[in-house]
Design a protein around this nucleic acid. Sequence first.
DNA 1: TGTATACAGGTTGTATACGATTTCTCCGAT
DNA 2: ATCGGAGAAATCGTATACAACCTGTATACA
Lengths: 230, 230
Amino acid sequence: MAERGRLEAVERRTAAEGVYLALKRDIITLRHPPGASLTEHSLAARHGTSRVPVREACRRLQQEGLLVGRPYKGYSVPPISLKEIGDCFDLRELLECHALELTSRRASAAELAGLKALAAVAYTFHDWDSYADFLERNFDFHVRLAALARNERLLGVLRDLLGTMQRFFFLGLDLGDFGAEMRGEHEELIAHLQHGRTAAAIDCLRGQIRSSRDRILRALIDQRFDLPLE
Amino acid sequence: MAERGRLEAVERRTAAEGVYLALKRDIITLRHPPGASLTEHSLAARHGTSRVPVREACRRLQQEGLLVGRPYKGYSVPPISLKEIGDCFDLRELLECHALELTSRRASAAELAGLKALAAVAYTFHDWDSYADFLERNFDFHVRLAALARNERLLGVLRDLLGTMQRFFFLGLDLGDFGAEMRGEHEELIAHLQHGRTAAAIDCLRGQIRSSRDRILRALIDQRFDLPLE
DNA sequence: TGTATACAGGTTGTATACGATTTCTCCGAT
DNA sequence: ATCGGAGAAATCGTATACAACCTGTATACA
């Protein structure tokens, strides 16, 4: 329980919220790797609270699929399977492309311009902190893009899904340098939207999502990560 | 806190699970109508437990969108808006049609035949218990149909969404007798699937979902329910 | 009369203690 | 040596007590 870095500085409204955010981050960034065992007691000690806020955080993460817990046996970080990656990307493509279509119909020029400011993202190969920063910005961009679709329910589902998928990205990022490949992706998308090319924008997004999936899957397979297929 | 009917007989593994199911049912069936105020204390008394299991149930329902709670102020059942109904149906159509396409590719003949047994659903106008039974069977049919798509993540999202939407159905069912109109809908869908007519099956489902939405919206508007538009 | 402040009531947030359930260990009987 | 059972340890499940926080009300003061 030594270095928790800058996480410490952030002040949260409630302890439960703090534990939730910290634990989620620990899982997503693979500090708690897939398969790791956790108990409410150890987590309480780690975060300096009692078991009550920990329980609440664990329940939320369980519902999001970032943690599994069996009664009287403790919790464990779920393994990452190739099938789950495929399923998540399939669902993401469905949701995000639909959201994009709505966005192109409903978003104002000003909103699109505002989004453009968030489009620039990049990372440095083998720099862990830069990964976290990159993924957070990327997450933000996609969530705000979907928010312009003005369907709260859709947005909520997509936000949870993208949050869960962050873990896949962390696993894949260190296995190859795709920075160049991804440069300008967001800008291209926004440009299509700003010129009213809805179909082109959707094709563009779909292609980007599939490329992302293929990059991750290829990297994982090449590096002989022994992930369960199912 | 008098009659809780047959709910009492059901034995659950944990108190929290029991409260969750009972409270969810109370909200869906409009026993706790939109806008109702609830406190952990009153719910604990109502269900005969302490606040701890109640808290857990409330958190789960909050994440599903069936309850909203503000710190130190209590909980309330969220209002039903026309926009929310539209958003949910839009998302449902997207998810369920996609799931159906996957199902038609992946489900075996035996699985489809098994589903056929669950297809028959009906209800009696103005009979509240028959509403609950009908909606539960209908829910079950759609969830199992989606399960054959073999995408766990998609299934989970759709199950939560349909659960939330049950509340809309209860609100609309008593406002008109649509039993005849809906008779045979499920059977028709299964028949298309069994004969490999994927596109026809999807069109069929899409039509049914939109009809359902229109019935509810029309009934609510005709009856001058003063729902918030946004 | 108007305003600010102190106080009381109610509600959720957290800590602690205890109970229920599972799992493992260890010891004895066969 | 192996099997079975009693008991201990670990872990989650629940109840209770108290703290933190928000809101409305009444009161003191200008």
